[in-house]
Computed example of a mutant assay.
Amino acid sequence: MTPRVDLATLYEQHHLGLIRLARLLVDDLPSAEDAVHDAFLGMHRNLDSIRDADAALAYVRRAVVNQSRSQLRRRRTVREHLKGAEPEVTPPADDDVLLAEEHREVLGALDRLPPRQREVLVLRYWSDLSEAQIADALGISKGTVKSQASRAVAALGEAMGVQR
C-alpha cells in the first residue's frame, strides 16, 4: 500500500519556498500567495488520486507554476480590456530602500525575459531544482530546459552589460 500524502506537513514544510517561487513569477506577494493556496487546494481535491507521496512536492510545485501562468494571462487580458480606465501604477515610496541597486537591476532584467526563460531561471537558481525537476515542473523536456537556461543567462548578461 502506498503511503498517503500528509498535506498539512507538506504545506508546513514547503509553502514559504513555494510563495517565494510564485512571487518571482507573478511580481506581487498577494498573487503569489493565491497561486500557492490554489495549488494546495487543487492538491487537496485530488489527494486520493496522488499515488506517490514522494512526488507530491513536484506535483504542487508544477501546480504553482501553472497557477502563476494563469494569473499572468488573466492579468494581461484584464489590462488589455481596461487600458484606458486603468490608472498609472507607481512603485511604493520605500521600494528603493528594500532592494540594493544591483538586485533591482537583476530583477528588472529577469522581468524582461520571456516567461519560459524566466521560469527556468527562477526554478534553477532560486528554487535550486535540477534540470529534470524543472522539466517536470514546466512540462517540457530537459533539452528545452538547457536551451532556455542558456538563452536566458545570455540575455541577462547582455542586459547587465556583462562581457563574455
Rank of each mutant, 00 (worst) to 15 (best):
M1F: 10
T2C: 02
P3L: 08
V5Q: 07
V5H: 06
L10M: 02
L10W: 08
Y11F: 14
E12S: 13
E12N: 11
Q13L: 12
L16V: 09
L16S: 13
L16D: 13
G17Q: 11
G17N: 13
I19Y: 05
I19S: 05
I19N: 06
L21H: 05
A22C: 07
A22I: 00
A22D: 08
L25V: 04
D27A: 15
D27C: 03
L29G: 04
E33W: 05
D34S: 13
A35C: 15
V36G: 04
D38G: 04
F40V: 01
F40A: 03
F40D: 05
L41T: 15
G42F: 02
M43T: 11
H44C: 04
D48P: 03
R51I: 01
D52E: 15
A53N: 08
A53Q: 12
D54Y: 10
Y59W: 12
R61H: 03
A63Q: 15
A63N: 14
V64S: 06
N66R: 12
Q71S: 13
R73Q: 12
R75F: 07
T77Y: 11
H81A: 12
G84N: 09
E86D: 05
V89M: 05
D96L: 13
V97F: 13
V97K: 09
E102L: 06
L107M: 13
G108P: 03
G108Y: 04
L113T: 05
P115V: 10
R116T: 13
Q117M: 09
Q117K: 01
V120L: 05
V120N: 05
L121N: 00
V122Y: 01
Y125E: 01
S127P: 03
S127K: 06
L129V: 00
L129S: 03
L129Y: 09
E131V: 06
E131M: 06
A132R: 12
Q133L: 10
Q133K: 11
A135G: 15
A135C: 08
A137H: 08
G139R: 12
I140E: 11
I140G: 07
G143C: 00
G143E: 15
G143D: 14
T144G: 04
T144M: 10
V145K: 01
K146T: 14
S147T: 15
A149C: 07
A149N: 12
S150E: 14
A152E: 01
G157I: 00
V162I: 14
Q163N: 10
